[in-house]
Design a protein around this nucleic acid. Structure first.
Lengths: 224, 224
DNA sequence: CAGACAAAAGTGTCTGACGATATTGCCCGA
DNA sequence: TCGGGCAATATCGTCAGACACTTTTGTCTG
């Protein structure tokens, strides 16, 4: 039925994937850094088999790159990759917003979205970067869920550019953040009003804004 | 073993992936069929390590599903999965067509597209199913390439529903096929004319048509 | 100082083994 | 006879050790 979630990873492979993922998210493994099997087997207490399987799956997720006989490194997307990825997220999340608006009366969709709106309103004031990041992720994730298209959620989750996210969110200041929240509210209201067109436009504008901000990141963060 | 096939897959893992993939494409492994490691190691002359790694990557590609302690089976997407996937391909390939039109004067894009138009014109007449399939794949692949967004090509290639493709193309008759070719020509001309809007609309219509056809597939092909 | 050669590091793969889990089929008592 | 329980089997998940191959590093010679 459902996939497993954070916490109860059953197999060693899954646990290993989670460990490496969190290492990348938390910045313990930096973009471009080599991931040497011998080290990882020691750190994570797994043998090479499951470890290699885990690395292989992370390649498919775009978090890791492998070159034959040279090993695995934490992925370092180029500027072009980032721009391309955000361009796709614009259309995909735009679609998600439109679908969510069209399905607002299905199940408890409206209730969940209202709850999200309240949550945003509450944390609006003095907001930490970490709070903003988790709020942001929850917001986008919710809309993908409400779109009713499970493939959509799966695909976008593969386009998170996780190796750059922390760096990205550190560069934007409070004004930009509250601006972003305002856009979230606008999207939310359009969805709650059942106005698919407006929701899609608002979401696309929101992500286009993000693309502009991403262009300002320093060169050092990007790869070939 | 020997030096191997198309493209030059270097490692055993890659060769194994190719072997299983082609097996699925050619229908030698049917949707829902169990893929037992012991059998595959014998058939492909690889050991379990690389084999498991290959299966893991195929999972990420959506061609195979793995349930712990129960093994791997060839993926059997549900009707809903198929509908969702095609909905996404509609927006993604629509975007690709638009971008391709906007970039028609870049590099040798126009030349490549003209060559494709000629190729289509030539094979138009008495067309085999196999010919149609490869023409179709080449056409869609070319437009993705010409879009200039490499992420786009990568993403769509993960949404091929390969386990259903052969079955799908067998169900459609000659009239539908030549109809499809006509749509291809329309898309092509819009791109060559540099009309992004028209190209996107034509492509979206084309894929929406495909969605309609997919709905007519028999229940037996789909999974939970 | 350059090029060649040797050592080291690290990956790719194989083999064999063992415990864990799921499935199958049999046995037994009600 | 029939359903539940229990062992046997099939298969997977993981480990450990070994060796070949490739890339990288380091050193030596001319």
């Amino acid at each position: 039925m459902e996939k497993n979630k954070t916490g109860g990873a059953k197999t060693v492979v899954e646990a290993t994937i989670e460990a490496i993922k969190s290492g990348i998210f938390e910045g313990r493994y930096a973009p471009g850094q080599r991931l040497i099997e011998a080290d990882l087997t020691r750190e994570l207490s797994v043998s090479r088999g499951p470890l290699r399987e885990a690395l292989g799956r992370l390649v498919a997720d775009g978090l890791v790159e492998i070159e034959p006989y040279r090993g695995a490194i934490v992925a370092r997307p180029s500027r072009e990759d980032v721009a391309n990825t955000l361009q796709l997220r614009e259309v995909l999340e735009g679609l998600a917003a439109r679908l969510a608006a069209e399905r607002i009366e299905i199940g408890d969709n409206r209730k969940r979205l209202v709850a999200e709106r309240d949550a945003i309103a509450k944390s609006d004031a003095g907001l930490e970067v970490a709070t903003f990041m988790s709020d942001n992720e929850r917001f986008h994730g919710l809309i993908l869920k409400l779109s009713g298209n499970s493939q959509l959620a799966r695909l976008v989750s593969q386009m998170q550019l996780p190796t750059l996210q922390t760096a990205f969110f550190r560069t934007i200041d409070q004004k930009v953040r509250s601006n972003s929240l305002a856009q979230h509210r606008e999207i939310l209201n359009a969805i709650l009003a059942g106005d698919g067109g407006a929701a899609e436009r608002a979401m696309r504008t929101h992500i286009a804004r993000t693309s502009e901000l991403a262009k300002r990141l320093p060169d050092a963060l990007f790869g070939a």
